[in-house]
Amino acid sequence: MRKRNPWIGALWFCAVVLVLGAFAAQVWQASFWYPSATDVSPGPVVRFLQQIADALVSPALYVGFGTIGGLLFLHARNRARRKS
């Protein structure tokens, strides 16, 4: 049985976490865009998390999708090597 490359599994994990985490952070941030009249202003912890989400959402999406693309390239390369 062929041994699986553990680094490829780790890369898939990172890519999925980056993409899904960025989507979740964006959705969470969007919930603050149209506050109702009864909503209280967010506290310091929420503001801190909002700033982190601001800084990380776009880079995480770029790198996550880039990682998936790179993994597909690596998969295609390994498959071509096995066939030749």
Partner: peptide, 15 residues
């Protein structure tokens, strides 16, 4: 973005 890409690139190199 570049910092995250460097980390992922090192993982690609090891893979």
């Amino acid at each position: 973005t570049v910092g995250l890409a460097i980390g992922v690139g090192v993982m690609f190199r090891r893979a």
